[in-house]
Design a binder for these strands. Sequence first.
DNA 1: CCCTAAACGAGACGGTACGTCCGGTCTTAAT
DNA 2: ATTAAGACCGGACGTACCGTCTCGTTTAGGG
Lengths: 196, 196, 196, 196
Amino acid sequence: MPNEESRRPHTGRRRNEEARRAILDAAVELIGRDEGPVTIDTIAAAAGVGKQTIYRWWPSKGAVLLEAMAERATADVPVTDTGSLAGDLDAFLLATFRSAGTGRTAPLLRMVMAEAQRDEQVAEVMRDFIAKRRAALRGVLERAGGRGEIRADADLDLMVDQAFGVLWYRILIGHAPLGENEARELGRSLVIQSRP
Amino acid sequence: MPNEESRRPHTGRRRNEEARRAILDAAVELIGRDEGPVTIDTIAAAAGVGKQTIYRWWPSKGAVLLEAMAERATADVPVTDTGSLAGDLDAFLLATFRSAGTGRTAPLLRMVMAEAQRDEQVAEVMRDFIAKRRAALRGVLERAGGRGEIRADADLDLMVDQAFGVLWYRILIGHAPLGENEARELGRSLVIQSRP
Amino acid sequence: MPNEESRRPHTGRRRNEEARRAILDAAVELIGRDEGPVTIDTIAAAAGVGKQTIYRWWPSKGAVLLEAMAERATADVPVTDTGSLAGDLDAFLLATFRSAGTGRTAPLLRMVMAEAQRDEQVAEVMRDFIAKRRAALRGVLERAGGRGEIRADADLDLMVDQAFGVLWYRILIGHAPLGENEARELGRSLVIQSRP
Amino acid sequence: MPNEESRRPHTGRRRNEEARRAILDAAVELIGRDEGPVTIDTIAAAAGVGKQTIYRWWPSKGAVLLEAMAERATADVPVTDTGSLAGDLDAFLLATFRSAGTGRTAPLLRMVMAEAQRDEQVAEVMRDFIAKRRAALRGVLERAGGRGEIRADADLDLMVDQAFGVLWYRILIGHAPLGENEARELGRSLVIQSRP
DNA sequence: CCCTAAACGAGACGGTACGTCCGGTCTTAAT
DNA sequence: ATTAAGACCGGACGTACCGTCTCGTTTAGGG
């Protein structure tokens, strides 16, 4: 690790961006295809990369998956302001469900969540990631509160967890779909329960 | 495999119920104590049992944990009828949170859920278990509907998933507590959103 | 598998010669000490090596022991030419008995022979090894035949098998010693029976 | 092992002798057929017998095989007196080779010898058995000595071990046949080397 | 234009857990 | 009381992954 002064700016070969991409893509691809176990070895082989190249940049398999997941999530779910709680929720939840419910992403999320249960390091980064997503949704609710759309004694954190809870619960168990209708219905139920 | 007539009733030694108990208890105990990894070997050793005795009756570690989990859940969460949606929900959610949020049970649930993401056999039994718990809560809501306490266009399945979603989401991420206050607040929000 | 041109010379870490030595030595040591069972696990532990490192290079425990045995045998029994059958036999048998009858080697030979009875792969390599040893002794006899020291109708293969038969029989049963006197007496009996 | 008097003729279910035969036959049969491993379980199953019935009468698998082997050996090799060393040796060795070289017996002998290398109890009984066979052959030689057919300084024990050594060596390695010609040639070589 | 340090693909390494097999003991109902 | 069936404890097997450690090669600065 370079020190803060960076006295010797750099010598030697730089990180290969292609390898990074190949690793993340191979990981997602393997999880999505669901053929056999997804291990560091299979990821490395699928990416045409040595194992050490993975361990040089990530501490564990969970970290790789986590980065792949985070990459997709931040790209897909920008927060928009439509002027009404109903509109904002709809936009947020539709984008979120579309991103998370997708064929390739859902298995990835399942894997990351499973990994976080075994690996405390992954769990920690996961909590950070989750905190950001929750803050985004809570921001939507707080803005609506500023507009007087939410009853004073509403538990915003609980509402946030109801939204993400439904999402994760259905992803992990797979007993119900995660389509646009479900996103809208969920938005509606949150609007109703928060009315002053 | 014995046929439905059970023509050949049984020969040979019977299953040792003490061993079964020791295995399930050891598994829960080890997960709860959180000292080192919980493996089939450590469970067998802690239960004073040969590994084969575990594999004779369960196909995998996940199946053992699942059975231990199911045992506790059915014992702890009977459905009661208080006459009102608010009362019924309170009773159900308080019992559920108390059971699931307990020191020993929460790590067990996390482990089982993680296992279900890797092992399709576990996932299948998990889905059965989850379906029963959801049916119980849905029963509470339907009874309230019969009393006219619920608006006609409410999505009962979504409400059920909001409740269990919050529960699992908080267990798996661990960002918020799962105490009596949270149970009550959750019940209240469900009552509000379902009012006609 | 490298072709004859060796187009791709080699990539990746090379076989660790120290590990190989440690494994073979540990195996012989454990058999010699006769404390508890000699298993792949105990060999690996004694050699400070992972089990997989053993299985990467040998197909079975028998193969490990066989290699250890072959190593010792070729080192210890060079063929010498004294000019007379009696002298050559004496030299060969003394060296052979000294090598095979040694404290550490005899238990090794017993183990290998036992293993060869269960494992056809070991048996095959064993037959190769045995064939070489038999050829060496037969060479001694043929050289004597060239000098006219052996009757025409002598069955050289039978004589060879008498020599090695006595050796193995006594090693396996342990009813008689395998010292210098026995080697000399055996040599004498072979000389006598082969006289023209 | 049932005593010779059968003092307590019967209580409870009676099948002992049949079971004993079935076990010994099944063991030999399984070893001879060479299909899959020969374990206590497979022997019990093939004999239509419970495992406990085997362990009631024999201390280990090796003991079963040993008894099967001993049964055949004593039946097949009576010592005869033809009046000459050459004749006696021929008779003894032909009978021995015929018995040991047989399709079903040779694999049995290999198995027993292998077992004796691992199990000291089997080794002990094996040494007894071997001692008897050696004594029988030594008796033949001593009788010839009494007739003046053997030189004074011949090492009778060595000659005995040469004979049995060839036999076992070829059985265990399988590099040469064990037919009538080999028996006769072996007898001839022993006669030659013992001539006064 | 070479030198040197880092990153790379390959793959062997020490280690842990897996799920299976087998040996020898114990328990059950039937005979 | 003995049997066949079969569950039990213990322990070795051979495999799969993990995360680390060499190898020899490739690549990008700095001299």
